[in-house]
Design a protein around this nucleic acid. Sequence first.
DNA 1: GAGTGGTCTAGACCACTAG
DNA 2: TAGTGGTCTAGACCACTCT
Lengths: 248, 248
Amino acid sequence: MDNPLIDHESSVTVYDQIANYLRNEINEGKIEKGARIPSETELADFFGASRGTVRKAISLLVEEGYLKKSHGKGTFVNVEKISYSIAQELISYAESMKKQNINFKTTVIEKEIVSADKEISEALNIDQGSQILFLKRLRTIEDEPAILLKNWVSIDRCPGIENFDYEEIGLFEAMETSIADKINYGIRNFSATNVDKVDAELLQLDDLREPILEIEQFTFNNADKPIECSIAYSRTDKYQVSSVLTRE
Amino acid sequence: MDNPLIDHESSVTVYDQIANYLRNEINEGKIEKGARIPSETELADFFGASRGTVRKAISLLVEEGYLKKSHGKGTFVNVEKISYSIAQELISYAESMKKQNINFKTTVIEKEIVSADKEISEALNIDQGSQILFLKRLRTIEDEPAILLKNWVSIDRCPGIENFDYEEIGLFEAMETSIADKINYGIRNFSATNVDKVDAELLQLDDLREPILEIEQFTFNNADKPIECSIAYSRTDKYQVSSVLTRE
DNA sequence: GAGTGGTCTAGACCACTAG
DNA sequence: TAGTGGTCTAGACCACTCT
């Protein structure tokens, strides 16, 4: 007799179905924070799955910060759901803010097609003079400027990327719609800098010499070719960039 | 007949032994970058282990950035070993530098036992006046200052932490020796700042107003109690803080 | 000693990629 | 069609924690 909670005909894997079920129970508070969840053996019985499949589901939730395992004791619901930030996960600023339920607005300052200069062509590993979409956007939180973004996207590697309304859609979303390949990985470099007068005004800085967190980013497709590079200037008093990291 | 490469009597798990073997082969260049490694079935035969165990070993190396799996095609050695940084993994600056084979030297500027003021007692969730080990260290790379570290460690939660030579041993190492519990997780906040005159001289900054990357950190034990907080000032021209992140 | 998660096995079938 | 990784099972034994 099959368990009605698990649909073996579904294209969704059994471990994903189990993870979804448990994630839901936790989000809805049906399992209390800090409480022990049933043992792997009990869950395997309950879902009519093998213990290995249950373990796989649990490991997903552990990675996501919902659960914590303790050898000999059991598996427990984390008191505080660990939040993932752009320093830990390759998500866009927009996606990160959405996950944190931050209400933001995007204003497109500049959007134009330019030809790649030496620096950009080297960064994106394309020919000098190739077509590039340059995007300059300001993200505001409660009408206060939080992040200023400058992106350079290779139009050759991301055809059609120039045809989106970037006040409505995020760049990552647009890139993944535009390319058949998904985004593969990205590199982010953290440093501190000053911004020029124009950018300082956009960010509403009182003092031109106020230090600003700079995050330089390179994004790669599945062929290991860079498709985009960007610089983000963050007012960390408005939008904190942080990581919650576990040991080992 | 057992495979001589695997020691079943060892306390090291079979999957770790397999992962170590493969990691070594890759590091020594015996498997070429970009090349396919043997299939999971072949490796299982070769090591005399089950396919599940081989998969576990491979998944470790995938996480570490050594390998990349491709459904239907095979498992391949990554061309560029993805490096992990303090933005992604809860490792200390010393551990991070060691992993990157960076040669560094630590100088202890200050080491003293102080009593917790309001700010520190709140950060560490302890009584005001509790004993704190304050540590101020400078890490130099090739005789040039790279990172200035200020740590406040609760002596109550980390007894004996004051008895280490911090020019020889890292603080994380000392903390894990001192407490029975291992370090559980940490929070890191990234921002940009200026430093005062004393610290600017230590970091050999030409200009007091040079922006500096500031990383604020809180470390927690298994009881979810903070054991340490710290501020690190990084000259990103000397030591780049970066993340390599994969999508999904 | 009883119960938990951690490791490991041997086998099955499926989904994807290539020639 | 053959070979790869992805999923899943059913069972075994071990290491750790608590009572």
